[in-house]
């Protein structure tokens, strides 16, 4: 057999050509919708209840101006426009995949109710987000316990009243617990929340990744 002598450059060119050629037959990597789950890790995360944050806890963080986490509203844009928790950014679930959220950021998410919030949490977990917290009961619970809290004994709960007022809420002082169960949340007089000052620039995002 005749021995073919190839220069280094020719060998490199052939390698490039072959790898380029096989690329034709494969998928587009960035269209991949697959996620890989580490089952053990996820199971432990589900058992661990430290990633569930009560509304009152969140309220305190927000008042303190805690900035080590990002508050993300995963409902759709319209729901977000109607009302959102002060300081929350809107990233609808359908856009999470292409968002610039970092996997290593501490992220507190909320959706409508407890179930949807938990489902969203699971989705983010499977996408590889490491540090996801969820708001207990979603935004419904926030409205119930912060914006329109039922306060039966105003003396012991001055702090709650103060917190509620901070977020523009209207504490229902003196209402009985029966009303609390059956009441409809007032929809019309939700406090107007100013959108975050620069909704485009996020606080947790590493600055300037470009050249």
């Amino acid at each position: 057999m005749k021995k073919i002598n190839l220069s280094t450059n020719n060998k490199l060119a052939i390698i490039a050509l072959i790898s380029g050629f096989f690329a034709i037959f494969f998928n587009t990597p960035y269209e991949s919708n697959k996620a890989i789950i580490n089952v053990d890790e996820l199971a432990l995360n589900i058992i661990d209840s430290n990633n569930i944050i009560a509304p009152i806890q969140l309220a305190e963080w927000l008042i303190q101006g805690k900035v080590d986490f990002r508050l993300i509203d995963v409902r759709d844009e319209k729901q977000y426009e109607d009302y959102f928790i002060t300081g929350a950014e809107n990233i609808p679930l359908t856009k999470i995949k292409t968002s610039e959220l970092l996997r290593n950021e501490k992220i507190l998410i909320y959706s409508d109710d407890e179930l949807k919030t938990a489902q969203s949490w699971l989705l983010l977990k499977t996408l590889g987000y490491k540090n996801i917290l969820m708001l207990k009961g979603g935004i419904d619970n926030w409205k119930k316990s912060i914006i329109f809290p039922i306060i039966s004994d105003s003396k012991n709960q001055e702090k709650l009243i103060e917190i509620s007022k901070h977020f523009g809420g209207t504490p229902l002082v003196g209402a009985t617990s029966e009303i609390a169960v059956s009441r409809e949340l007032p929809k019309t007089n939700l406090p107007k929340v100013q959108p975050p000052p620069s909704s485009g620039e996020k606080k947790g995002k590493p600055k300037r990744e470009g050249c």
Binding site: A16, L17, G20, F21, I24, T28
Partner: peptide, 15 residues
Amino acid sequence: IPYGIVIFFVVLMAL
């Protein structure tokens, strides 16, 4: 054009 085919074209163009 699918991503893989663009890659092939870029390789061809470079070579």
